[in-house]
Simulated assay, not measured.
Amino acid sequence: MNSPTRPHHDTDDLLRVLGIPTKGAVYDLSSGWWRHMPTFDGYPRFEVVTYNSPQGQRVSQRFPFDNPAENEVEFGYVSELVSGSLHTGTHIDALCHVTCGANDEWHGGVSAHDALGDHGAERDDASHLPPVIGRGVLLDVPAALGLEVLPPHFAIGEQHLRQAADAAELSIQDGDVVLVRTGQMKFWPDVDRIQKYSGGSGVALDGAQWLVSQGARYVGADTMSFEVRPSSVPGNQLPVHLYLLHEQGIHIMEWVNCEGLAADAVSQFLFVGLPLTISGGTGSPLRPVAVA
């Protein structure tokens, strides 16, 4: 079993960011999770089925109905079986999620040929995802451009991110958790409306490079893929994923619901996100909160 990576902050940084909230307002930034919810076409559907029920326990005379004399109150229990991709709904990518080159290498030159076993990645997997606690900033790009949502396939470049930061009167600091809003979650979970009004909008490569140059430690967006689709980089379908995860070792969060923050014009907050440290996983579901 892999041991989790320690958080990317020291004690002074942690105490500083814990002092950011001034209003005591908490925003749930998650998508919610339910059976057959929208997800990337390449992933299995999210499934929730009942695995144990009081009726089944009675019929099969299983615990706690295996000894009626000891179960006079007829205690029973319900449990479930959950299956699906760890990239369903709001989630964070582990470093082993994307590979590049003939040797299928992920961040740090680790080859899937050497580190991917029958039960998932054995290095740089979700068990290494630390608690994400830091100063969060929202770059509300449509608001900065005078729009409700970005149009389909809109490429968010450096100039748009700078404009959103200027509109919020903030600058990105080392270690920040930067969330980029396109407005797509305004239509969630109606994927047809998302596709019609804003599908494919996302961060372009120069935008991602600018975020890193400013000191962003984690990045997220309210979209399925974070980056603009289709790619404008010839021969590279997901250049932002490769740049952030593969080259820079920066984790990406997707389907982060920024609508509450945007509605209240909250641009700076305490961000808290706790990944599930699943050994072998290429990512983790995430229920992040912003505290303003």
Rank of each mutant, 00 (worst) to 15 (best):
210 W>R: 05
169 E>H: 13
16 R>H: 14
191 V>I: 15
277 T>L: 04
118 D>H: 07
127 S>C: 15
252 I>A: 07
200 G>K: 01
169 E>Y: 02
10 D>G: 13
186 K>I: 03
225 S>W: 01
6 R>Y: 09
148 E>K: 15
230 P>S: 14
250 I>W: 05
247 E>S: 14
114 D>Y: 05
35 R>L: 00
43 Y>D: 15
107 H>T: 14
31 S>M: 12
56 G>L: 02
48 V>S: 00
19 G>F: 12
99 T>D: 08
129 L>F: 13
135 R>T: 07
162 R>D: 08
148 E>N: 14
31 S>V: 04
275 P>Q: 12
36 H>W: 02
6 R>G: 04
220 G>T: 09
72 E>C: 05
173 Q>D: 11
32 G>V: 02
255 W>I: 08
275 P>I: 09
18 L>D: 09
195 Q>P: 00
81 L>V: 15
230 P>Y: 12
23 K>I: 07
95 L>I: 10
261 L>N: 00
203 V>Y: 03
242 L>W: 10
37 M>I: 10
43 Y>G: 00
256 V>A: 06
116 L>M: 11
101 G>I: 03
275 P>V: 11
47 E>W: 02
265 A>H: 13
260 G>L: 02
241 H>P: 00
276 L>E: 13
95 L>E: 04
270 L>A: 08
74 E>S: 15
281 G>N: 13
234 P>V: 04
143 A>F: 00
282 T>W: 00
273 G>Y: 05
26 V>P: 06
283 G>L: 07
35 R>I: 00
261 L>V: 03
58 R>D: 08
147 L>Y: 09
52 N>Y: 04
135 R>W: 06
19 G>Y: 11
251 H>N: 15
